[in-house]
Design a protein around this nucleic acid. Structure first.
Lengths: 142, 142
DNA sequence: GTGTTTTTTGCATCATTGTTGCATTTTAAT
DNA sequence: ATTAAAATGCAACAATGATGCAAAAAACAC
């Protein structure tokens, strides 16, 4: 089980041409364990303070650069990251799914099955990426 | 012109049961002058440093509480505010339009004419609010 | 208008978040 | 096992935001 997951993580890092380090493996484990988005503070808590703040920042930035994770828009100063399930490459990164923020439990989830609609913009605007964040009550809290 | 705008601002503050102060009037003027979203740092710059940082924070929070402005989601730590054009009340606040973030000039605009689509969520989820942020190139930068 | 009460502001202080430079450690490659 | 490259931890710093409290300004009553 855990060994299998570790193997997956190693593969993922290899295919992104990243060295295998404790921090990276641990952070990816945390991503896979949680079914929602995580923010920086979560990693400090969940990892049991074993990693330096700065290392976590740099690790998340590296994962972003490589398209392993993506950011989710928020209306506050928090920065939330979710792991990319599908076809996010290093250079052409798009999230083709909706993000859901539960007002009860505060969790943020990726609704992978829910496609984002096509938005008809006014003349003169060119769209590269569309982010949809729905807030409400999730199925666990209902 | 300017007198007329001032009058509008006073009316707006009165109808929200807020006292008329220099800071509030100035910040609302800046909102009306700019056709996009503003963040805290903008007010410090645009107002010519004449107001205290804390006062600006508190003023924006007050406007949020009263439904005069709303926040726009971002993927970084910045918090962007836009003035509510339409039917945002104190308790039932919804933005029924799309936000556009230009990758060239960095501005964020409200596309008041562009309605947000209805999102079909998975079973068990209840939606209260939907935020759509499109990024790309705006008509000024094209 | 004047005086009083309430609200707002400015300042000092503190907490949190994120960044950078550099020495040390770890990983990868030979 | 040795060496070169990359990642980490630490110290220091900057930016953002919050809170308590005294001074100033606005609103209200007269």
């Amino acid at each position: 089980m855990a060994a299998k997951q570790k193997e997956l993580i190693v593969q993922l890092l290899r295919s992104s041409k990243l060295s295998i380090t404790d921090t990276r493996v641990k952070i990816l484990e945390l991503f896979m364990k949680s079914n929602g988005a995580l923010e920086h503070a979560d990693f400090e808590k969940l990892s049991g303070k074993s990693f330096d703040r700065v290392t976590i920042y740099r690790t998340l930035q590296t994962f972003l650069d490589k398209g392993i994770v993506h950011k989710i828009p928020t209306t506050d100063t928090s920065v939330r990251y979710a792991i990319c399930k599908s076809d996010c490459g290093e250079h052409d990164h798009h999230d083709h799914h909706v993000h859901f923020r539960c007002e009860e439990c505060g969790s943020t989830q990726c609704l992978d099955e829910t496609d984002i609609p096509v938005i008809q913009l006014p003349k003169g605007y060119a769209a590269h990426n569309v982010e949809v964040v729905v807030s409400g009550v999730c199925k666990e809290c209902k």
